[in-house]
Design a protein around this nucleic acid. Sequence first.
DNA 1: ATCCTACGATGGACGTAGTCCAAGTCAAGA
DNA 2: TCTTGACTTGGACTACGTCCATCGTAGGAT
Lengths: 136, 136
Amino acid sequence: MNDLLERLRARGWRMTSQRRVVAEVLAGDHVHLTADEVHARAVARLPEIARATVYNTLGELVALGEVVELSTDGRAKRYDPNAHRPHQHLVCSGCGIIRDVHPTGDPLDVLPPAERFGFTVSKADVTYRGLCPACV
Amino acid sequence: MNDLLERLRARGWRMTSQRRVVAEVLAGDHVHLTADEVHARAVARLPEIARATVYNTLGELVALGEVVELSTDGRAKRYDPNAHRPHQHLVCSGCGIIRDVHPTGDPLDVLPPAERFGFTVSKADVTYRGLCPACV
DNA sequence: ATCCTACGATGGACGTAGTCCAAGTCAAGA
DNA sequence: TCTTGACTTGGACTACGTCCATCGTAGGAT
């Protein structure tokens, strides 16, 4: 988490209290928060922080590759701070909880050239869906 | 496409001109339209059709499993009428065009039991991302 | 330690996607 | 042909996100 702040500073970020708080919220318990949830937690530490600032900061973190943006349902985007270890997501169709999972092999390998239609394919996002133990 | 109307009738659907038009739009050229695009095309055939009706009908088609809902970006959901042949999607990060693709094997097979955390996993949605030939 | 200034924060208006609901309409069975 | 409840309508409303003019401040320069 502090190394995140280090990396940001190294990239020329002006270190404001708002950005620090957003980074801390994300680095806290590793869950997949929506922008408004991040804002709510940030407000607890820095009451004046604006919603637009949270959106801006999240967008910058995504652009820098420090955070991954997920849209697993059609609802609000969620932000995944675990950007440096490749992984996929397992989503409960009942309650919406998201877990990071690690399938074996590279999902790109199973897409044959004939199925690529001339695209330069660079990544594969996999969303496994099912019911969690609490929602059976 | 007519068989779609048959199946809907068999399920007890009251066959209205609105529903017929929405089904026809989806069954037309097989692209992945947003709800508002479906509405625009429906209006061309039936000028009075309301946006809410298109949303309702699309929702019902999804619930019946006749159409698949996609949210590949954080934008509007897209509707895929090709629901009866399992497939995945290849999305161009440049222009957003979507192609149906068929990877080899079942993507569920590569998620080991230890990575399922007690979930009853029922499906895997894979989104391959890259650049299409026109966007290189 | 103080000053400067460009980068960042603010908050309120705005935009887009989608949902809700009360009232009216009509498909299809009697 | 009549009846009825399922379906449609359109406008208000909500959720999520973006934009922008103005203000504030981090951090380099002095």
